[in-house]
């Protein structure tokens, strides 16, 4: 690897250019078991535009993953770990909104949508049916039977 060494120093240059770049510390991050990512996926990264703490490479997200890993090692449950972050950032940090208060309505939305649309559909059908019956009253039974038979044949 000796020949490569110079390369990496050259590589470190574009890293620090612009000063906007957050320097990556040259120490290896800890190893993360799968559970860390499962929990981090449910938490929002505070500095990113809507990315989760599992995906983002921002410093805060990395630190969040570390904290999750440490707390898992201490034997905390996923719910306790999530609560840890809620205490510091509020409900906003949870990608899954709590089922209470204003966000309860999001959880009710499937039911609400189904009821609203279902009611509309039912009312539409009831109207169309009553209209059909009103029209059918003027047609003889024989005619209906003939038409139905014809429709079936098609």
């Amino acid at each position: 690897m000796r020949g490569v060494r110079g390369w990496f120093l050259a590589l470190a240059l574009p890293l620090s250019f612009g000063a906007l770049a957050q320097p990556v510390p040259n120490t290896p991050p800890p190893d993360f078991p799968p559970q860390v990512f499962e929990i981090a996926r449910e938490l929002r990264c505070p500095v990113c535009q809507g990315e989760s703490a599992a995906e983002s490479n921002a410093g805060i997200a990395l630190e969040m993953r570390r904290i999750i890993a440490e707390q898992l090692e201490q034997g905390k449950s996923p719910a306790e770990i999530k609560q840890f972050f809620v205490e510091r950032y509020g409900d906003w940090i949870l990608f899954e909104p709590p089922a209470r208060g204003l966000t309860l309505w999001v959880w009710l939305s499937p039911l609400l949508g189904l009821l609203l649309l279902g009611y509309g559909l039912w009312r539409h059908q009831a109207r169309a049916k009553s209209l059909a019956q009103a029209q059918a009253a003027g047609v003889s039974e024989e005619e209906i039977a003939r038409l139905e038979a014809e429709l079936d044949r098609r």
Partner: peptide, 14 residues
């Protein structure tokens, strides 16, 4: 605070 641990303790966003 190399890791920014206190920042998270306070709930910082950047």
């Amino acid at each position: 605070d190399a890791r920014g641990r206190i920042g998270i303790e306070y709930g910082y966003t950047g």
